[in-house]
Design a protein around this nucleic acid. Sequence first.
DNA 1: ATTCATGTTTACAACGTTGCAATTCTTGTG
DNA 2: CACAAGAATTGCAACGTTGTAAACATGAAT
Lengths: 339, 339
Amino acid sequence: MNQKTTASAKGRVTLRTIAEVTGLSLSTVSLSLRGGTTLKQETRDKVAEAALALGYVPDRAGVRLRTGKTNVVALVLDGAEDSIDFARQMIQGIGAAIKGTRYHLTVIPEFERNQSAETIRYILDNRTADGVIITHTEPRDARVQMMMDADFPFVSHGRTEFYTPHPYHDFHSEDFATMAVERLAGKGCKSVMLVIGDDSTTNYHNIVTAFMKAAARAGLDGTVLEGTKGLTPAEMRKLGLDLATRDGRPDGIISDSEMRTIALVGGLQEGGVVLGRELQLIYKQTSGILPTLFPALDSIREDVFAAGGELTRLLLRRIEGEAITDLQSLAEPQPMWRS
Amino acid sequence: MNQKTTASAKGRVTLRTIAEVTGLSLSTVSLSLRGGTTLKQETRDKVAEAALALGYVPDRAGVRLRTGKTNVVALVLDGAEDSIDFARQMIQGIGAAIKGTRYHLTVIPEFERNQSAETIRYILDNRTADGVIITHTEPRDARVQMMMDADFPFVSHGRTEFYTPHPYHDFHSEDFATMAVERLAGKGCKSVMLVIGDDSTTNYHNIVTAFMKAAARAGLDGTVLEGTKGLTPAEMRKLGLDLATRDGRPDGIISDSEMRTIALVGGLQEGGVVLGRELQLIYKQTSGILPTLFPALDSIREDVFAAGGELTRLLLRRIEGEAITDLQSLAEPQPMWRS
DNA sequence: ATTCATGTTTACAACGTTGCAATTCTTGTG
DNA sequence: CACAAGAATTGCAACGTTGTAAACATGAAT
């Protein structure tokens, strides 16, 4: 009839639509939907009912413009492919945790590590998300620094060395290394080697330190295979082959990356090594592929899906303003012994 | 001094900031930034200069509220893990194609196939993205139907059987099957078997049909291994083992899924089969893991990263209103023969 | 000088939401 | 029955943007 009716007739259900239907004002409806306690119960019921019946969903742009709240969680996706299926599981985990909330997930794929500061800068400047999840955290991670400085909500998959605490969820790498070493010791190994990649992450340091400590404690000869960082799978495979035929090779290997494990095992087997007899190997497992491939090999599992969920829950609580010291957690490694 | 100066002083650069700096009106600045041709060149320069200097970026919420344009591309991420690393590569591909545009990527992980209609419904009802990318398309895909009905921009990774055309980018599965069969024939195989999973996708039908045709043409005995759909990797491995010891087994196998290939090969090898001699195998490759693992096996590659990029470009063009018939493309399989 | 066309800039309203200040409605009390 | 006090509701402005209609400026033609 008049303009108002026309407006509501064409399509979307807004606060105005509900206002018209209930005969209340826009303000009242808005207030009511947000749980205004000064409102009469009758009014609140009426509004709630109408909103439900009409299938009202608040317009994200309206809310965002008015309040600045984006209702978006951003995942900065590292390009690393050490952990097979990492991205998918992480995203699924976040998705599961987000389900039923107002939040959406936006993913920002990263191509080079040194761009990551730009990415964060952009998010900070343009308030394009309410919170950020980062992975592959470094001891003095520039992204963490930036977001702490800006007092911007984030959570990192991985710890840092910063004095000021920040929310994180991390795999307990130290326990991983310790468990692995002890397992190898229990199998009678004398000389163990740690094969580990990306030396820029905090994770790297945690593992190496715990590994050396555990090896010493168990009276084993412990070495770290350095310089595997930029290796292609083919090169890594070659390295496994070399290792197989080398004198005085270790009798126990711990590998922290699935990608490297595959290549390494390929090389070792090509070199005639029978894993589980002459040489023990334990790898960090995230994907379900390797257990299929090497059903006889021991592994220690990180549940990336669960990590995604936990990271998200921590982040959302941080966004709600919860104390940071309550927002730190570690995931226990899950031993998957095969014998 | 007055309100205006205060507003611009605190933080974000908006049109108003530029207006104040240049002494022009809001409208002029807005118009100018959008390339208003009626404006004096001098004015346009002045505005452009100020915008650059101040680092102006249009507020997404403002634009979205006013125009309805979200500048968001949504990826509905299927939970399937047949193709290892599929999600990551797809996302990277989309990310690369999006880079430098106004678009952001939001990812909606799917947990069960039958929920997918809800997901699309939600996007359609709430206009939460300007366009959608879907994967694992089915012949009469309900999602496709819904979006076509709503005339909503989308692109599918995979074709359908609908009469009305829609944008898609797909792997040329028929060529894949044909190439694989011919390769096996060339290696002297007489009896070839197709191992293929998810029978709900269009892809499945395309491959099976082309496979049977090619086998017949080459005078080979062609069979399709049915019922592998819901198999766990362990069961699949078992199946490989059975196959290895079975009488009258095929001498050539074509596998369309990396996950299944790994399990299958594991079983076959456990059964004592030496691949490449008694039995030939060709698999569809997307991830780089299998070539590391089985350096001697032939494969045919789909570049998922490139697919993500192509899908995105098609979608953006669709959003711009380009004719749908121009927005369909196929990716040629890339043979990776190892001998 | 007035009018007209043309070139250039601007005011205004609207998108959907929220928070504050202000208004209206109910009561109970004197 | 007037009136304060409290309960309940509402108007208004603002967030940043854009499209339309209108205003203004300039100079040429009358």
